[in-house]
Design a protein around this nucleic acid. Structure first.
Lengths: 348, 348
DNA sequence: TGACTTTATTTGATCGATCAAACTTTTCTT
DNA sequence: AAGAAAAGTTTGATCGATCAAATAAAGTCA
């Protein structure tokens, strides 16, 4: 025994066979108690650690999940995915799963990577983020029978209930509905919304949350509501511009809700009246400047992803399709309320 | 051939032996050109992909590097490590290396993970972040002959030139020196510095950059300089407090430099005089609010790390110790100057 | 007790690739 | 052109674990 100890070494030391050692590690139940203890002692004694690659070669599974690390975009909202990655890694670790990162320049390139990692038995499955309508990646994975779970629901028409597409998502509707309610309960009537142009899966959901809550209360007529809504692309300066426009055209404002923290930060900058502003994503920026925000609860998302991936359907996408356990999780976000602290700022 | 094609399948198809196929992939030089083409055609034809785990079992190397994903701290500065991770993954991918994530609850736990991943042939080496004085991790890795590179120089007394400790770091001194110079060139004389308590490896470096630049110019006496310096722990509100204190006790302020973007953001909040504030890390927050900041150039850091890891010394830490190629890289950061945009804000 | 299960353990084969050494072909010497 | 050296290719063994099937031990029942 020159290098690290192997099963054979342990078997020899414990006076049993290789297979028994293997059984102690993988199916302890079928080994008699006293034998098991002897083997466990030998394992400890020799400091034995199973050779992961050898095991993978034989079992054809790697206990590793692959996830693509998206390129950094603006940075503010990008941190949500980073936080998700943290949560995922932490929880995967706790289950003995490893997380392998990779990058890709396009969806097609990403598919190439899927193939490479899957064929090499590098990973057992994938976690996808940033899904979009007509996403070729999910189609390819399904066609090739590779396990995966998406963070983000499928936005295609009839994909939502595709039994082969497991997904976890955050209920943006509920998030904005709650945020709107919170402002209403605090006495606000005229609550504006700065959102993204349609069609945008997530954006439309969030907008609807605000819209429904407003309509339910009925404080504002439908026509007035239209004046309280502004559509713009994401970004801090866009938020500032939108807020300026609202102040000029929307009449009195009791509160402003935004589709993202970037927009919210921008809105705060042009907010001398100190109207309460609420963002979305609860990014570090929101925490730093004391901005209320809707928190996506990445921990719960990560838990859901792993649950689906390793659960009844997870080992293999095609496993046990007859069961009727739900194939997705819709997480309700949490509203984080912060004092309207060191803000507002003045436009120079 | 039921499953995926193997070397044997390719060999059969190309009319050569397994080993020749293997040679085509690993040492193309020793295979005759026409044979090689035939094999390559067969590989393409069959869509053959080598089985990563099998290869690892045999070669005892994995082409994978492990990196611990630090727990999220405050979030603002934490994004530097996330950006580094992005850069590392991207560049590792380009070199055919994979990045495996893991988490740990303490340095000792991290060492346990090192052992597990190393023994299982899961990784060839590690990238460490957030090193500190007397770090047990580097000692353990050196003692066990495991390859690693740290992002962050060793802070122990005589470790800096330890030939077994490869490291890459950003020259904080140069960063603050340049930032100070930039303000001086713009006409500023009385430049304050908000930093961290000593001893702090990185913090002390940065402070010294400011201090040296101030002394070189000689606009301010040493006693006055002491009044222009404030020491505090990191955080947005600490930055606000420090700025308030400076305004009360330090006399006229022409500019303020901070050890972090968190402090800088805080400083800006208590900055009605619109004194130029410069942060450190060039985080998304700095970009969003239009704050000048020192950029750590994570791309260069990542390149340096990979270079050291895969280079002459990288394959094995103990490899070729007789060469005199430098065993570390000191990256010069870049000052990112931004207009003092939508800020300042007023304290309510 | 002896035949018959059930439970526990062992043996031989295998996963897919590469290493090391043997072997064959080509190229170089003189 | 014969013999030596170099280049190219093939064969058998091996990495460390698990699977599948065979064997041994323990427990059950008439």
């Amino acid at each position: 025994m020159s290098g690290l100890p192997t099963v054979t070494d342990v078997a020899l030391a414990a006076g049993v066979s290789r297979q028994t050692v293997s059984n102690v590690m993988n199916s302890p139940g079928i080994v008699r108690a006293d034998t098991r203890e002897r083997v466990e002692a030998a394992i400890k004694e020799l400091g034995y650690r199973p050779h992961a690659s050898a095991r993978r070669l034989r079992t054809r599974r790697s206990s590793t999940i692959g996830i693509r690390l998206d390129p950094m975009i603006d940075g503010i909202s990008g941190s949500v995915l980073d936080r998700f990655l943290h949560a995922l890694t932490e929880q995967a670790d706790a289950q003995g799963l490893r997380v392998l990162l990779f990058t890709a320049t396009s969806p097609d390139d990403e598919i190439t990577q899927f193939q490479r990692l899957n064929d090499g038995a590098d990973v057992d499955g994938f976690v996808l983020t940033s899904t979009f309508a007509g996403d070729p990646r999910t189609q390819w994975l399904i066609a090739n029978g590779i396990s995966f779970v998406t963070f983000g629901r499928p936005w295609g028409d009839d994909d939502l209930n595709d039994p082969q597409h497991l997904w976890v998502d955050v209920d943006g509707w509920a998030g904005l509905h709650e945020a709107t309610r919170a402002q209403q309960d605090a006495g606000a009537r005229r609550i504006a919304y700065i959102g993204w142009p349609s069609p945008s899966g997530t954006g439309d959901e969030r907008r609807r949350g605000w819209y429904d809550a407003m309509m339910e209360r009925g404080d504002v007529s439908a026509e007035e509501l239209a004046r309280l809504e502004i559509v713009t692309t994401d970004g801090v300066s866009q938020g500032t511009a939108a807020m300026t426009e609202l102040r000029q055209n929307a009449g009195r404002l009791d509160a402003v809700l935004c589709a993202s923290d970037s927009l919210a930060l921008g809105a705060m900058i042009a907010n001398p009246g100190r109207v309460p502003v609420t963002g979305y994503d609860n990014t570090p920026v929101a925490a730093a400047v004391g901005l209320s925000s809707v928190d996506q609860a990445v921990d719960e998302v990560a838990a859901g992803v792993l649950d689906l991936l390793t659960g009844e359907f997870g080992g293999r996408v095609h496993g046990a399709p007859e069961s009727d356990e739900p194939r997705h999780r819709l997480i309700t976000p949490r509203l984080v309320v912060r004092e309207f602290a060191a803000i507002p700022m003045d436009v120079p």
